[in-house]
Simulated assay, not measured.
Amino acid sequence: MFKALVVDKDADSGKTSAAVKDIALADLPEGEVTVAVEYSTVNYKDGLCIGPGGGLVRSYPHVPGIDFAGTVEASDDPRYASGDKVVLTGWRVGEAHWGGYAQKARVRADWLVPLPEGLDTRQAMAVGTAGFTAMLAVMALEDHGLTPGQGPVLVTGAAGGVGSVATAILARLGHEVAGVTGRPETADYLRKLGATTIVPREELAETVKRPLESETWAGCVDAVGGAMLARLLGQMKYGGSVAAVGLAGGAGLPATVIPFLLRGVNLLGIDSVMQPYDNRLRAWQRIARDLPMDRLEDMIRPATLGDLPGLGADILNGRVQGRVVVDVNA
């Protein structure tokens, strides 16, 4: 028997409840690799799966946790052997498939990535899906021509999980980083991560009629979407790119095509869930190389399985700063 956060739904009321329970190895779903989980983390999707489900969870009882890192305990796949350190993000694990909020997990071998040299399992979960997504966004901007010295790079939702890691990586790579936040109390935190400018959210939240404004940003990692994304598209420098990673401000895009036609602006969609293996490996290797570990440590908030019901509610209400690292064995 081992411990897991189990979410169940009442058949009559439809309400969900989450509690730490003992489950057996035989309860785990099918998969080629069994992992002794060491750490997990908390993302917005986790908050949904711990709470109302958000349409992500297919059946109950359910073990959430879209990320985990740990040590292979048993494997029917030649790519992994007992004792290997591995990390998992995406593939709808923690949503359609039982996830990492447990001391053991069983998954398909195709979903795993070897833990890159230079990272331990705790650091990997300080990165998690949020940091992995941030690295994918930085790589996409680089692939479309972004280099240090071209001008400031904007990060929206900068104090959140994706924004925090993006800010630290971009600063480490030599970019001038402007962090957008609606929480003035996070300014010192963002400067410590490497942001040189703090942009109050209200400065970009208002929709304007002009399709183009002054060319300001050489690139952007956007976690907000909605009206803010529409506004900043008109502020991009010629040929600049925006990597869209989230929709905290809404799924709509009240924009025109003018920035694309007159300034050659690129809007790059970033998906971390179904990312091919080779690009996953490339991103994790870049994380190990380009994410400053001292700044990563500044982002970490420790937690246990018992803390997760409260943290799930907190992240849905925008009350989580940086990265939560869940020690599933504490």
Rank of each mutant, 00 (worst) to 15 (best):
D8E: 15
G14V: 13
T16V: 14
V20D: 02
K21I: 11
K21Y: 00
D22W: 00
A24H: 13
D27K: 07
L28V: 08
E32M: 05
V33N: 04
T34W: 04
Y44H: 15
D46W: 00
G47E: 09
G47Q: 09
P52H: 15
H62Y: 06
P64S: 03
G65S: 10
F68H: 09
A69R: 04
A74P: 09
S75F: 03
R79A: 15
S82F: 00
G83M: 04
D84C: 10
D84I: 12
K85H: 11
K85D: 07
T89C: 12
G90K: 07
G90W: 04
E95A: 12
G100T: 12
Q103G: 12
R106N: 08
R108A: 15
R108I: 05
A109W: 00
D110L: 12
W111S: 14
L112C: 09
D120M: 05
A124L: 06
V127N: 11
A130N: 11
G131T: 09
T133N: 10
L136Y: 03
M139Q: 15
A140C: 03
D143Y: 01
D143I: 01
D143S: 14
L146G: 03
T147D: 02
G157S: 06
A159W: 00
G160I: 10
A168S: 14
A168E: 03
L170V: 01
R172A: 15
R172G: 11
G174I: 10
G174F: 02
H175V: 00
E176R: 02
G179Y: 04
G182M: 07
G182Q: 07
R183N: 13
P184W: 00
P184L: 00
T186M: 02
A187D: 13
D188N: 07
Y189S: 08
R201K: 10
R201E: 08
L204K: 09
A205S: 15
A205W: 01
E206G: 07
K209G: 14
K209L: 13
P211H: 01
L212S: 08
S214M: 10
E215I: 11
T216Y: 00
T216I: 07
W217V: 00
G226N: 07
R231V: 07
L232V: 15
L232K: 09
K237A: 11
Y238E: 10
G240D: 04
A243N: 05
A243Y: 01
A244Q: 15
A244G: 11
G246C: 08
L247K: 04
L247N: 14
A248G: 10
G250W: 06
T256C: 10
F260Q: 10
L262K: 02
L268D: 04
Q275M: 13
D278R: 13
R280V: 10
R282P: 08
W284L: 12
R286G: 13
R289I: 03
R295A: 13
L296T: 11
L296F: 05
D298F: 01
I300F: 02
I300N: 08
I300P: 11
A303H: 06
L305V: 12
D307A: 12
G312L: 05
A313P: 04
I315F: 05
R319F: 00
G322L: 05
G322S: 12
R323G: 06
D327W: 07
